[in-house]
Design a protein around this nucleic acid. Structure first.
Length: 463
RNA sequence: UCCUCGAUAGCUCAAUGGUGGAGCAACCGGCUGUUAACCGGUAGGUUGUAGGUUCGAGUCCUACUCGGGGAGCCA
């Protein structure tokens, strides 16, 4: 008898119909009568369950009827067309072996649970429909991102997780140390002597691979990173995590417009890929999580993203100042309410905002000819807000050195970064894409904690 | 970190300052095609923690803990 997966049965139904076959999986729900019953089995290979019909011809019929949710079974039987309306076929069981009985105190029930509750049982939640869908889509999209860049000849660079540079500039950092926190070695001034630490210096977890990946950009032309990133910020929002994954492409011989083109093409590619390769999961999100999901995603695939400069955006937003808690004027950083207004009310689609005032952006962003703005861009999307932040990088050594002085940065800390400008440094650009935010956008899930397997946020590091 | 709302059975929620309940889950029984099956029954509680007000607190007050929503920081 052939052992098959539920996915095979759904995808190649004609091959298996009226055949004897074997499946193994977990009980999602079970309904019994006096002489027969139904079990919905999920075998992990596929989003949908398969219905198993069993009756008193089985020698262990009574025992099967007592199986609880999440018990594991191996079932042999014949795949037959189903008389019921809700499934095209079902497995008529001829033999059922109980592999593992789940205890009666199993916390998942055949009813809707709140996401808040499921977070408290993060080790069990992948067994639910929603989380099974989220994490399969997450896997599919991770692959789509690699495919997109690899098809274009980008080189995947593994930048370090531990960094000795305490000035990556993107946020608060987690310290990495082997020193005894209760009794660290101290220097004459009484400060902790990191010279005695593992690396002989103060080290942290990375907040961005960008500066490192720029070095490989100047060798491989087009490169990307895709890995974990850590921010020790006390952020308590639905879209921030202390540990998250980020994609950072970097392209050489390229300017800001090339950067935005790449970002738009990438977003469309991964949306298309998710719809094509996880159709059941995406349909589930559209039905139960966000009823406007398909409409929104199709809208993205079918239309060009909006483009607006910061200066244009400010003059548009100034007309609506009455709407805002924080009035807009040139020079301020855009608040969440302003970003949402732009993408949700004015453009009603993803929009790039570019060329921000230099004072509110990072030192490495390329100074524009107006001497007031830098070649930066954010991609704002309805519902999630900022999903990408990027820029053309300052490739001119003198300009970069001046900018570093303005930011109070020491050249010796960045000597290798400056070397890139000394030895064949060309125009280049790149961006950072928050992986979890893409998953949120693609699935309609509204809390980042629900698209990370075991989320790490301020005050929470369970599991 | 700030603002705001909340915490009652395993889960989702009721309960005017006066004897803490229901649905689902669990357990027992019934039912010949179910679809979160249905019907009957049993069991299940230090009302988040610590104080306070009151004859009496799930209910009012204070602090703390945890969670939701919003803001800041950002991806």
């Amino acid at each position: 008898m052939q052992a098959v997966t539920v996915k095979q049965i759904f995808r190649e139904t004609e091959t298996f119909l009226n055949q004897k076959l074997e499946i193994s999986g977990w009980v999602r729900t079970i309904r019994t009568s006096k002489a027969f019953g139904f079990i919905e089995i999920n075998d992990g290979s596929f989003f949908e369950n398969i219905q198993v019909v069993f009756d008193e011809s089985l020698d262990n019929f009574l025992e099967i009827g007592k199986q609880t949710i999440s018990s594991a079974l191996r079932i042999q039987g014949t795949l037959v067309a189903s008389p019921g309306a809700k499934q095209p076929f079902e497995l008529k069981a001829e033999h059922i072996e109980i592999l593992a009985l789940a205890g009666g105190d199993y916390p998942l029930q055949k009813k809707r649970h709140t996401f808040e509750y499921l977070r408290t049982i993060a080790h069990l939640r992948p067994r639910t429909n929603t989380f099974a869908a989220v994490f399969r889509v997450r896997s599919v999209v991770a692959y789509a991102i690699h495919r997109f860049f690899q098809e274009k000849g980008f080189v995947y660079v593994h930048t370090p997780i531990i960094t000795g540079s305490d000035a990556e500039g993107a946020g608060e950092m987690f310290k990495v140390t082997v020193l005894d926190p209760a009794n660290p070695p101290r220097n004459d001034a009484g400060a902790v002597n990191y010279g005695e630490d593992f690396f002989g210096k103060e080290t942290s977890l990375t907040v961005s691979g960008q500066l490192n990946v720029e070095t490989y950009c100047m060798a491989f032309r087009n490169v990307y990173t895709f890995g974990p990133t850590f921010r020790a910020e006390n952020s308590n929002t639905a879209r921030h995590a202390a540990e998250f994954w980020m994609i950072e492409p970097e392209i050489a011989f390229a300017e800001l417009t090339d950067n935005m083109k790449l970002a738009e093409e990438m977003m469309k590619y991964i949306i298309r890929y998710a719809l094509d390769n996880a159709p059941e999961e995406m349909a589930f999100f559209n039905k139960f999580v966000d009823k406007t999901l398909f409409e929104r995603l199709e809208n993205i695939l079918n239309f060009d993203f909006g483009h607006i400069t910061y200066t244009e955006a400010v003059s548009l937003l100034e007309k609506e100042n009455a709407e805002f808690e924080y009035p807009v004027h040139w020079g301020i950083d855009l608040q969440t309410e302003h970003e949402r207004y732009l993408t949700e009310n004015i453009f009603k689609k993803p929009v790039f905002v570019s060329d921000y005032p230099k004072d509110i952006k990072a030192f490495y962003m390329r100074l524009n000819d107006d001497n007031k703005t830098v070649a930066a861009m954010d991609l704002l999307v309805p519902g999630v807000g900022e999903i990408i932040g990027g820029s053309q990088r300052e490739e001119r050594l003198e300009v970069l050195e001046n900018r570093m002085k303005e930011f109070g940065l020491k050249e010796e800390d960045y000597y290798w970064y400056l070397d890139l400008r000394r030895y064949g440094g060309v125009k280049h650009a790149g961006y950072g894409l928050g992986f979890e935010r893409v998953i949120m956008y693609l699935t309609g899930m509204s809390n980042i904690r629900d698209v990370v397997s075991f989320p790490r946020t301020a005050n929470t590091c369970e599991f």
